[in-house]
Amino acid sequence: FICEYPSHIELDGHCVVKLVDNNNKDRNQITLLSFGGSAYTKKHTLVMKYISVWSNISKNCNEWIPFTDNRNRPIIIGRDENHFYQGVRAVIGGSNNHLLFITYLYKNISVFDLNTFQYIKHDKLPTGNLIYYHCFTGLSIEYDEYNNTFQFHQLSVYDNIASFYQYAYVCINDIILFFGGYGWNGKKWTISKLVYKYSIRENKWMAFQNTLPNSLYKCVAILSEEDNDIHIIGGQNDKNAFLSTHMKTKVNVWDSSQLVMICLFIIYLF
C-alpha cells in the first residue's frame, strides 16, 4: 500500500501520467500527475513524488498534493467549468517533455504547457467515432511545436475492433496489444475476450487465435520492462461483476496458456 487519494476526490475515468524531470538524477524517484473530472464529478489535478517504500521516504513524497504553479497557486487542468474529462487519455511530449497532449470526449485534442500552466492548442480529431476510454483512434498525429499545428493521418483499423473501447492496451516498441473491450459486434453490444496486435511500422493488424480466459473490459495492462511481463489487472466481466484480477504473460511468447491467474475476487455484482 502506497497512499490514498484525498477523501474529497471522486475518481471516475481520470488519467495518471508520468512527468519527465530532466534535472532529476534520482532514478528511484518519479513524479506522477493525476487529473480528471466532469460536469458531474469534482475536478482534480494532483501530483505525487513517488519513492519506493523500501527507500528512505522524505516529506511530501508518496502522497497526492495539489498541482501548483511557480507562485504556489493551485492549477486545475480543464478547459472550462463544464469540461468532460471522464475517460480522458493523455501523453507527455514536446522538445523538453513539457507538453501534455490530452484527448477526450467527444472528438477533442488539447495541448497543455506544463511550464506556463496554460492551454496552447485546441483542435478536433477527424474521426467518425466518439473517443471515450479510448486508446486507438485510427489516426497518426503529428504536432509541429514551432508553428503550433497538428497534422492528422488516417490509419487502417481492424473491423472487429473499430467499435470497441474500454479495453486494456500496452505499447511495446512499435506494436500495440489490445486485450478485451466493450463494443458492438454487428448484432449486439458485447464484452470481448479477444486479443489483437497492431504494428505501427507495418500498419497491419493481427487477431490472436488464443484469447483471454474470460470476457473482460475496463481493465488495465502494464508492461514490466525489467522482466518482460505484461500484467492485466482489474476490470469487469460479461456479468458486469467488478473483478480484482491479476494475470500476467511474457511479451515475447503470447499464448493464453502462459496467463497465470494470481487472484480473482468478485467485489460487486450489478
Rank of each mutant, 00 (worst) to 15 (best):
I65N: 03
I141D: 07
S257C: 13
T245W: 07
I131L: 04
L194V: 13
Q154V: 12
L11T: 10
E145R: 08
Y132F: 07
C263V: 14
I30N: 04
L19P: 00
G183I: 03
N237K: 05
Y182L: 15
F208D: 10
D227M: 06
I191T: 03
N185K: 13
V111G: 00
E142C: 07
S192G: 11
Y106P: 09
I233H: 04
H8V: 13
H134K: 14
I75L: 04
I233F: 04
I232T: 00
I30R: 07
N108A: 03
Y119S: 02
S34W: 00
H134G: 14
V111A: 03
L46K: 02
I2Y: 11
V253S: 14
N160W: 02
I175G: 05
I109R: 01
F152H: 00
L259M: 15
N237P: 04
G37M: 02
I109N: 02
D238R: 07
Y169H: 10
Y50F: 15
Y132C: 04
R79V: 00
F136Q: 12
C61I: 07
F35G: 03
K239E: 10
C263M: 13
K193W: 09
D227F: 05
N210D: 13
M206E: 14
Y268E: 13
N28I: 05
G234M: 02
Q166S: 14
G235F: 01
Y165S: 13
I161H: 01
N173S: 14
D159F: 13
Y143F: 15
V88C: 07
S199A: 05
V88M: 07
N72Y: 14
K49I: 05
N62Y: 09
I120W: 01
K43D: 05
I30C: 07
S95H: 11
N214K: 09
Q154T: 15
V195C: 09
G138Q: 07
D80A: 07
